[in-house]
Amino acid sequence: MKIVVAVKVVADDQDIFVSGDRSLDYSKARQIISTYDTNAIEAAAQLAADNDGTVVAISASTTKADDTKVKKDILSRGIDELFMVADDSLETADSYATAQVLKGIVDANASDYDLILCGDGSADLYAGQVDVQLAAALDVPVINEVTGLKVEGDKVVVERTLEDEVEEIEVPLPAVISVSPNVATPRIPGMREILAAGKKPSSVEGLAGALETKVEVEDIKAPEMTPRKNEIFAEGDIDAFAAAVAEALK
């Protein structure tokens, strides 16, 4: 069984700062695996382990992602091989453009895939659209918000946890599935896996041709800070405080 997992490499949001002009300062932020993709990676690795399969990671990221440490991080989590397209035009790529690039990677390197897993959404844009767009581009079925999955013959049985029931759905393969973060807890990579990661195959290529986007980005700005009201209640006057909170929530 061949499983593909789509991984985005993003700037660590803990170290992104808002400058005086509300622009974002990425200069201190190192590149990391987009948080929810670590759950997808773990789900893929567990599925491969249970089904005698292999997992390849694919990524469409900026050239900053072509970083030995972040690549080893991906490969230390149960991934067998990594294919990355790194191009700075992907910085503001929309879901459509990203899906087209990922399709190109799949066609060129993993066209014999059985299943493609995506995370819940990227840590930066969190549009949650790449899975759907990728499935459309590949012309295969897609299902999202999956909280559990197992392989049965030539299909996958997935669980989706709804408010009052757990839905069980059979999906014929090949397919694209996006998983919720609680599908699997990411492993803690041990030194053995970390050391092995540097020896695993990985390739990074530039973008072939121009990026076709459907959304144009004009500017990226942090929202304006709402000034705090600094409303102070007299000590012990819990009723007035509660009333004010209730009013604000209306």
């Binding site: 803690i188 030194m191 970390i194 050391l195």
Partner: peptide, 18 residues
Amino acid sequence: TDEQELLVESLKEYADRY
């Protein structure tokens, strides 16, 4: 090294969890 930095990150994750 990359490997040492990744080891430190794994230790952080381990400590945070347990």
